Simulated scan of single mutants.
Amino acid sequence: MTRLTEEVPFEMAGMRLDQILAELFTDYSRSKLQIWVKAGRVQVNGLTLKAKDKLEGGETITLDAEAEVVITSEAEEIPLDIVYEDNSLLIVNKPAGLVVHPAAGNWSGTLLNALLNHDPNLETLPRAGIVHRIDKETSGLLMIAKTLQAHNSLTQQLQDRDINREYLAITKGRMTAGGTVDEPIGRHPTDRKRYTVKENGKFAVTHYRVVQRFARHTLIRVKLETGRTHQIRVHMAHIRFPLLGDQVYGGRFQMPPDCSERLEKELRSFKRQALHAAKLGLVHPVTDEYMEWEQPLPDDMTRLLEALAENERD
């Protein structure tokens, strides 16, 4: 139970209690607030009123907000690489191969199951506080809200495009310069597991710049303006620079010519898209302070880049 107190602004004089609650306690839905009014969890100057009662302004509203279990998944002892944690926010560095939350074919062994083991209170939050997700085979930074207020704050920042998300990726093909892909994305018309650029898709913008060029590959830094499913993978494939190792959008595997033994070994063993969520920046949901985290490339991408660089020197 969390007790919250707010004073009714005089400019809200004449408004109904349920309308005022929706204005003052934006972290909770109107339906949930109405349930709490009926249950007597809302008091106005110490009195229990009805949702339709009108207020004069200046009253003190006390709300006893109750946390309810909304997650039915089981907690599992799965190690977490925690980058930052406080009472309202958790930042983790997700390894490649870990599914973010349960779905068909992956009902256990996910990040969500690991989070429930780390903090059982997360069972009261939608998706155990997971605000956004990255693909199973993508590594890197993810933010998790630990309170409903933090969840609503981070969700709103995402909707307002105020979250800074930057990725490092290795593409097939040598880019000459960076650029922007501004193309709508929607589900593929025949393969429901894939996405594609299509006229009636959702607005999607991806900015990218070259970090390092190789003979037939490029290391790029990507900044998301929107966050559509598979956005970077779809946009890069659309401009004919698909991500290295992407078995869905990258086309048939081909070993490049003049390839060293080391590079060939790394390319054959690299079975995921070469994509890492390297930087995450946001406004803290409680302190309003801008915070930013960065994680270096994981070992598999580092080895791949070293092999590409060595191949250039040979």
Score class of each variant (00 low, 15 high):
Asn117Arg: 09
Ile134Ala: 02
Thr124Asn: 11
Asp162Pro: 00
Asn164Gln: 12
Asn87Met: 04
Gln149Pro: 00
Ile134Tyr: 02
His118Thr: 14
Ala96Glu: 09
Ala103Met: 05
Leu122His: 03
Asp135Ala: 00
Leu111Cys: 08
Ile130Arg: 02
Ala103Cys: 08
Asp160Ile: 02
Val83Tyr: 03
Asn121Pro: 10
Glu137Asn: 14
Leu141Gln: 00
Arg133Ser: 00
Pro126Leu: 09
Ser153Val: 04
Asn164Pro: 07
Gly109Leu: 13
Pro102Ser: 05
Ser153Ala: 15
Gly97Met: 14
Met143His: 00
His151Arg: 15
Pro120Asp: 10
Ala150Tyr: 11
Glu85Val: 13
Arg161Ala: 05
Thr155Asn: 09
Leu112Thr: 03
Gly140Val: 00
Asn121Thr: 15
Gln159Thr: 06
Leu142Gly: 01
Arg127Ile: 05
His101Val: 08
Ile144Gln: 05
Trp107Glu: 14
His132Phe: 06
His118Phe: 13
Leu90Cys: 08
Ala128Thr: 10
Ser139His: 04
Leu141Met: 00
Gly97Thr: 13
Leu112Cys: 05
Asn152Tyr: 06
Thr147Glu: 09
Tyr84Cys: 09
Lys136Pro: 01
Thr138Asn: 05
Pro120Ala: 07
Asn117Cys: 13
His151Ala: 10
Ala96Trp: 02
Gly97Cys: 15
Trp107Gln: 15
Leu142Thr: 01
Leu98Gly: 01
Ile134Phe: 03
Ala128Leu: 09
Ser108Pro: 12
Pro126Gln: 10
Asn113Gly: 07
Asp160Trp: 11
Gln156Ser: 12
Ile91Met: 07
Leu125Asn: 02
Ala145Arg: 11
Leu90Lys: 09
Ile130Val: 14
Tyr84Ile: 13
Pro126Asn: 11
Met143Pro: 04
Ala114Pro: 07
Leu148Glu: 15
Ala150Phe: 13
Pro120Tyr: 08
Val131Lys: 10
Leu154Asp: 01
Pro126Lys: 09
Leu122Met: 05
Val131Thr: 11
His118Gly: 14
Asn113Arg: 09
Thr147Tyr: 07
Ala103Asp: 05
Ser153Cys: 12
Asp119Lys: 07
His151Met: 11
